[in-house]
């Protein structure tokens, strides 16, 4: 629906300051760096098979249909999370929510830009750092570049995306970010040893 009450009059109050969780936090260990990434635009996209083509067109990338995969184009990545569920992340400042608003094909798109926090884990020991709390096989054979999955890190749920041979993007909910970042930092410290 979106603009129920979009009104004219702008008393133009000053825009509130955005304060992302954990902004700027970084931990470096031998062989791996854990770093909070800047805010991004995100939607949780749900749609039946029949709507995928229309949504792909609107989003400018082909929504992946294979489990544990993602598709990326122009700073925008769509992660397959379930058979009718994608997490779309836009790092180029374009709002995917707006892109989907005009799609009449059956779907649900919900803005979750502020729900998630992204943490980059990069370096030769990145895999080991994440495996400190994630039970999945993260070898390149089992979890190649582009692989994406919702999973577990310790006692928190994360979404994991492999962005390069030695780099991952870990997404978690905002209030879990301190826990997840601390966990990854400990994992990084151990992976270095």
């Amino acid at each position: 629906m979106a603009k129920v009450a979009a009104k004219t009059a702008s008393t133009a109050s000053p825009s509130a300051e955005r304060r992302p969780a954990l902004a700027g936090r970084t931990v470096s260990a031998t062989g791996v760096k854990v770093e909070v990434l800047p805010p991004a635009e995100r939607i949780s996209l749900r749609a039946p098979e029949a709507s995928v083509a229309a949504l792909s067109k609107a989003l400018g990338l082909t929504l992946p249909k294979q489990p544990k995969t993602s598709a990326s184009k122009g700073g925008r990545t769509a992660l397959w999370l379930g058979p009718d569920e994608w997490l779309v992340i836009d790092e180029a400042g374009k709002d995917p929510l707006a892109d989907c608003a005009g799609v009449s094909a059956l779907h649900s798109s919900v803005g979750v830009s502020h729900r998630n926090i992204a943490i980059s884990v990069a370096g030769p020991a990145a895999e080991a750092a994440i495996n400190s709390g994630c039970p999945q096989d993260l070898s390149l054979e089992a979890f190649p570049v582009g692989a994406a999955s919702r999973t577990i890190l310790g006692k928190a749920e994360i979404v994991l995306l492999r962005t390069a041979d030695e780099a991952f993007r870990v997404e978690c909910w905002r209030s879990f970010s301190d826990y997840v970042f601390t966990f990854l930092s400990e994992g990084a410290r151990d992976a270095a040893g």
């Binding site: 919900v110 979750v112 729900r115 998630n116």
Partner: peptide
């Protein structure tokens, strides 16, 4: 469809 927006 259902989406958790607790933290949004």
């Amino acid at each position: 469809w259902l989406t958790s927006i607790t933290e949004q």
